[in-house]
Design a protein around this nucleic acid. Structure first.
Lengths: 253, 253
DNA sequence: CGCAATCTTGATGATTATCAAATAATGTGG
DNA sequence: CCACATTATTTGATAATCATCAAGATTGCG
């Protein structure tokens, strides 16, 4: 059950690069971003260091320990893994965050608690947002808080669904659910079916689903044999029939 | 793995009783309640049906399906289980909510989705709150949203810790963690140690931890034999040394 | 006190983890 | 672009953990 502790944690001193310019969100086209919406054009200069836009190359890690508790991350594009690691090296990936997703750093509570990291699966751009200064000064602050509250509520719902999955679903159900989730978010519809590029290794999928990489591999093979998916390469999944996968995910054995 | 579907779901048409009086929070002493704080004394009459106080007897169930998406529950006292049930009867208890805890109803998404119920473990009083009308009209609305946002963020953290537990911990670790959590929230310090009254059956603990009741029983027995706990009755746990339990919870095997 | 529900314990089975190769994919320098 | 080294994935054999089934033992309640 225990995993080897990767003590060489290899957290790249965030080589994330600050965006040029000090006016946050100025000229940003992300219209679904709650911060962009709350900051009227007029106020783009008022809290110049409340928002930092960064980019991360595939594989880069960001140690979240130093961030204030009012911080929110927003993934602009690409994909970020939200990783939780315990003292003894056990690992769980709480979420794969993509386009427009928000993420809240886990507060560091007692010693012996889990630590949080973010790691880019693909080249990723993200914004690191300090909520407090914006909420204090910006005119659209009420709307900002409302939007953030709604987003946090949505996150609660998602994590609760995932708790159910982790508590009460079989290996096949978990993997089917994961593939469906990713397919909805990043899949490309083709004439063969939905094509899904897995940017992460089996080990990371296992960490997300509370399993071992060998089990991921075995279930993948079983799906392939049952022609639920095609698997031209380990990192490319083609789903001819989403409903078939969906049936497996919801436990129609 | 599948559990028998309890089709006779036995959801008592909420026999919850509306509190007398239409002025929400009037005279309410719950000073930690974010709504109570946001509603100035002056405005207690403005949104008279935004808050409903109810009480539930032990075992009563509340089907949450009818509530608007801006609803929040707040447990005043007692204990409420937040249950998630799938079509085929598999069940997960997302949380045991106690004093002052907030809970947000899970939105009902697609068919085949999990359904949510709340069930009182003990006699419980709770407030059912419609956020929108208060947020629109009350003067302390900014503070309300901020408090709710903070509470939702905390809930995200808790559920993420629980995901880690469900994904990566053994049966003994899960149960130890559960007993610690309850002990902190409802335990009574005595000279023998922390005394913990379990108001729920083994089956419900199992539903919370993603296990079977027999396994709960076995792990309990093993704790008893190792003198980590004493168990005078099935529903009474005495923890002489919280740290011993804590060590088990964090995987010091 | 006696019944019904709950809990405990034992025996067995299913699922998934672990260990160990073998195979396949990916990247690199010539 | 190819051969090779490296890393990731797959597959097989076996073990551990937890679930399931089936009695008993307790508990709590009327």
């Amino acid at each position: 059950m225990k995993q080897e502790s990767e003590l060489a944690m290899d957290v790249a001193a965030p080589e994330l690069t600050k965006q040029t310019g000090l006016m946050p969100c100025h000229g940003c086209e992300e219209l679904t971003c709650p911060i962009r919406q709350a900051l009227g054009e007029a106020d783009l200069t008022t809290c110049s260091n409340a928002v930092t836009r960064m980019s991360a190359r595939a594989g880069e890690k960001l140690d979240v320990a130093g961030f204030a508790p009012d911080t929110v991350f927003r993934v602009v594009n690409g994909m970020l893994m939200q990783e939780h690691v315990s003292e003894d090296g056990r690992r769980h990936i709480a979420a794969f965050k993509t386009n427009g997703d928000l993420s809240w750093p886990l507060p560091h509570l007692k010693p012996g608690d889990i630590r949080e990291f973010y790691e880019a699966v693909q080249p990723t751009e993200l914004c690191i947002i300090s909520v407090d200064p914006i909420a204090r000064s910006a005119p659209g602050s009420a709307g900002l808080l409302k939007a953030l509250y709604g987003a946090a509520r949505d996150e609660v719902s998602r994590t609760q669904s995932r708790m159910f999955l982790l508590a009460r679903s079989s290996a096949a159900e978990r993997l089917a659910g994961f593939l469906l989730d990713l397919a909805e978010r990043t899949g490309q519809a083709t004439r063969r079916g939905v094509e899904l590029k897995l940017g992460m290794r089996r080990e990371r999928i296992a960490d997300h689903l509370g399993m071992q990489p060998e089990t991921i591999s075995r279930v993948m093979s079983s799906f392939k044999k049952a022609e639920i998916i095609r698997l031209p390469r380990p990192s490319l999944v083609i789903i001819p029939d989403l409903q078939a996968l969906s049936a497996i995910a919801s436990g129609v054995s």
